[in-house]
């Protein structure tokens, strides 16, 4: 139990100042923690605050350390382990380029429809699909597209927020 490795989504509010992302990434690489996904963007321009969402894996002790180490960085205001603190929503956006012809092309469109992915670019030989959802939904979509001519993919990484009225 103690050593079970689990996936956690951690959100941090940080001062949007030079080097803050390097501090966070350096902390992970320096202490040997994993980063499965990372997103960062300003969320409060009046106060210069950015939000960093990190998906990581580790034992409960490691995850607790990651949280404490992040919280220790001077420009970090607040750290929240969304996986532990209650129900939350995770979304990721992906763009997938599928190059094919004939029956495969039709099949790609059909599957895109099932996944509610939109074609945002089309040529006579290719589509670019935009899909939003959980990371696992995007994984599943990509798996199905692979034999249908998936040649290129770009993912944003996970944005996450807690359910209910409370802020981070």
């Amino acid at each position: 139990m103690q050593d079970t490795i689990a996936r956690h989504t951690i959100s941090a509010l940080v001062d949007n100042e030079a080097g803050v992302l390097a501090r966070v990434i350096g902390l992970f690489s320096g202490r040997g923690y994993n980063i499965d996904s990372l997103t960062v963007s300003e969320v409060d321009s009046a106060n210069g605050v950015s939000r960093i969402n990190i998906v990581t894996t580790g034992t409960p002790m490691t995850i607790e350390q990651i949280k404490a180490q992040l919280d220790r960085l001077v420009p970090v205001h607040r750290v929240s382990d969304l996986t532990v603190e209650g129900p939350h929503i995770e979304r990721e956006l992906a763009l997938l380029k599928v190059r094919s012809s004939g029956e495969k092309r039709v099949e790609a469109l059909r599957i895109a429809d099932i996944f509610k992915a939109r074609a945002v670019d089309a040529t006579d030989r290719s589509f670019v699909f935009e899909i939003t959802g959980s990371a696992s939904k995007i994984d599943a979509f990509a798996e199905l597209m692979r034999p249908l001519g998936l040649v290129d993919m770009s993912r944003t990484g996970v944005a996450a927020i807690s359910r209910g009225p409370d802020e981070i």
């Binding site: 030079a18 080097g19 390097a22 501090r23 350096g26 320096g30 001077v74 420009p75």
Partner: peptide, 14 residues
């Protein structure tokens, strides 16, 4: 300097 000393300081500024 700030890059080199980031992991060996509590905090640094440029």
């Amino acid at each position: 300097t700030t890059g080199i000393t980031r992991p060996c300081t509590k905090h640094n500024y440029l």
